[in-house]
Each structure stands twice: as C-alpha cells, then as structure tokens.
C-alpha cells in the first residue's frame, strides 16, 4: 500500500465530496476492526493459526477474533494450508458464498504458491482459484507473521474505496 497522500486519496475516493470521504473513512474504520473470518484450514499452517488464535498470541486484540463457520456471515476468508486439486472446487464454492465486501488472506507457502509441493496434486497458489488480498509467506508462518498480515489487511481496508448503498451513482 504505502503511504497515501491525503489529497490524491480524497480526489480518488471522493466521488461525492467531503461527507462521502468521511463516510468512506468511517466505514473503513468500522470494517477493519470487526472482521468475521472463516478459517479454511486444511494443513500444517492450521497449527500456527491455532496458536495465533489462542491466548498466547491472541489475534482477538485486532478485532478478528470472531470465527464463523458460515461463509455467508464472514468478511474474511483465511485460507490456511495446502489446497489440493480435489479441494479447489470446495474453496471456490466457499468463496462464492461470501457476501461483498470480502477479503482473502492466503496463509503459508502452500496457499501462496504451492510451496514445496510442486507436483500433480497441489494447486500452485490459491490466486489461481480466487482473488487474494494478503499473502503470508512462511512454511508455516509464525504467529507474529499472521498478526502482521492482519494489520496489513486492516490498513488496506481502511484505505480502500468502500461500497455503500447510498453512494452517489455516476
């Protein structure tokens, strides 16, 4: 993302003017601290995800503690672990069931690029199936890295164009 120059940012996201910008900001602020996430855990990285979720590292501090196992209520899809060719349609179905706006984190080398499994059975990165917002490298990533990724995603959510119903149509 990098630092956003305020003036350019307002011009880009303005669409409506000062109030629209402020609403945009407010919505971003609200959305980033109330992420309901769907943990799509398949493999090894799930263990580190468990560590990050539990009391020791506790990512509830960042407002992502709410785990929901229904994609329809989730804002963020946490793809943790290897996605094999057999699993790929399942992941796609889950993603398609999520409501807008939604975000995806690919956690671990396997989800990012297939990792060390460059063979017939593994999808070489989940971005071949669904769009991804944040990639977390590491095999498996340490809990700190997961926390860092969550912060990065929150940063992104804060600064992106927010959709809201009453937005002025062009």
């Amino acid at each position: 993302m990098g630092k956003i120059k305020p003036r350019a940012y307002y011009r880009e996201t303005l669409n409506g003017g000062f109030i629209a910008t402020k609403i945009n900001y407010m919505l971003g602020w609200g959305r980033k601290y109330s992420l309901f996430h769907y943990p799509f855990i398949t493999a090894c990285c799930g263990m580190e995800y468990m560590s990050a979720a539990c009391a020791h590292w506790d990512f509830d501090r960042f407002g992502v503690g709410m785990t929901t196992f229904s994609p329809r209520q989730a804002d963020m899809l946490f793809v943790v672990g290897t996605i094999s060719q057999k699993e790929a349609p399942v992941l796609k179905t889950v993603y398609e069931q999520m409501c807008e706006p939604n975000w995806v984190i690919a956690c671990g080398a396997c989800a990012v690029s297939g990792g060390i499994y460059d063979n017939y059975a593994v999808v070489q990165g989940i971005d071949k199936i669904i769009p991804v917002d944040v990639f977390i490298p590491g095999c498996p990533p340490r809990p700190e890295t997961i926390l860092n990724a969550i912060e990065k995603l929150q940063d992104k959510i804060q600064h992106q164009k927010q959709d809201w119903k009453w937005k002025i149509k062009k």
């Binding site: 060719q85 790929a88 017939y120």
Partner: peptide, 27 residues
Amino acid sequence: FMYEGFEGYPLCKDYPLRKRQPKIPLR
C-alpha cells in the same frame, strides 16, 4: 485419494511428477 475424472495412476513411474489435471478451470 484422487478425484473422479483423474486419468492415469500417479505413483507409476511413467506418470510425470508435474502433470496436473485441474478439477476446475483455473483463473
């Protein structure tokens, strides 16, 4: 382990290591 529609037998020596047969079209 493999899905329906997968052709060939992966652990045979004549099956190439990286011959993929995606179940869904990739983006």
